[in-house]
């Protein structure tokens, strides 16, 4: 073994190594970024689903916002109460209790109830259908059933039932809101579980149209408003809007005169609806 070449090799390699290490050391000092260690700790207490339910792009952004004081600890709808408590402990604040929320599908117009307008041969998504002459059903406010909400759910909590309407798995639903954004007709809404009275229709059409479009549509007859009172139910564009703050928890429907059973308590909707009436 040639000693000279060995020494030269080691010296040159070692020299290069040392040189670059010194360069990296200088960079380490000059380019150092101060990172709050609490961010990583908060990240550890978040579900890590990156669903965007908090309104921020991903869990790491939410963790940074919490530590910076820009986001509420309860802002993550997916997190358990334990997780929220842990984060409260890290940040040294009182933990709040947030009421459980769920996604509610506010349309009863499935395949059995609605009348079709055309045969649709386009891209089978709700958005594409909705943009194509207002969809393949006569009612231009109702559910199209192509499942954009299903695709958008990161928790597998929503699926299209036999009747072509989305059904929510209340165990899995975390109220992250992705389905709300995905629905091009804003049929799905997130509500606290204490809200139990809903109008299961979004149609702004009057009676002379709804009798053609759907057997469960709200035709704007105002019977519910007359039954509950104007301070509890407001009519906007032929649709009742329930004022949940004023109404409180409801134990019976405000009227029995709703012709198509468009307004109802949430339990009653869990029973699958079969209609006797066929729409032509």
């Amino acid at each position: 073994m040639d000693l000279t070449s060995l020494v030269v090799s080691m010296a040159s390699m070692g020299g290069l190594g040392a040189l670059f290490a010194i360069g990296l050391a200088i960079a380490h000092v000059k380019l150092h970024v101060e990172v709050d260690p609490r961010i990583d700790m908060v990240m550890g207490e978040l579900p890590g689903a990156n669903c965007g339910g908090c309104g921020l792009p991903g869990c790491s952004a939410f963790a940074e916002a919490i530590v910076a004081g820009n986001a509420a600890i309860t802002g993550c709808p997916v997190n358990t109460q334990d997780g929220v408590d842990e984060i409260a402990g890290i940040m040294g604040v009182q933990a709040e209790v947030k009421e459980k929320e769920l996604a509610r599908v506010l349309c009863n117009g499935g395949n059995a109830e609605t009348a079709p307008k055309a045969i649709y041969k386009g891209i089978k998504t709700c958005l594409a259908a909705h943009l194509t002459f207002g969809g393949d059903k006569l009612c231009k406010y109702g559910c199209l059933g192509y499942g954009d909400c299903v695709v958008s759910c990161p928790f597998d909590a929503i699926y299209i039932g036999d009747n072509g309407l989305p059904l929510v798995d209340e165990e899995k639903c975390t109220a992250c809101g992705n389905c709300v954004t995905a629905c091009p007709r804003n049929i799905i809404e997130v509500h606290p579980v204490s809200h139990n009275l809903f109008v299961f229709c979004k149609s702004e059409d009057e009676a002379k149209y709804t009798k053609l479009t759907c057997t469960r549509a709200c035709n704007g007859c105002k019977a519910c408003q007359k039954g509950a009172g104007v301070e509890k139910i407001e009519m906007v564009n032929n649709l009742p809007r329930i004022n949940y703050e004023v109404y409180g928890v409801v134990d019976e429907v405000p009227t029995t005169k709703c012709r198509n059973n468009a307004i109802g308590l949430i339990e009653s909707v869990k029973v699958p609806v079969t209609t006797a009436q066929e729409n032509k």
């Binding site: 090799s9 040392a18 290490a21 990296l24 050391a25």
Partner: peptide, 26 residues
């Protein structure tokens, strides 16, 4: 301490590399 460790480790790796390759070459 980190800086010293950085320099020592990288120099050590480079020295070993140089030595190994030189011996291999012969």
């Amino acid at each position: 301490k980190t800086i010293v460790k950085m320099i020592v480790v990288l120099t050590a790796i480079s020295l070993l590399s140089g030595g190994l390759l030189s011996s291999l070459d012969s």
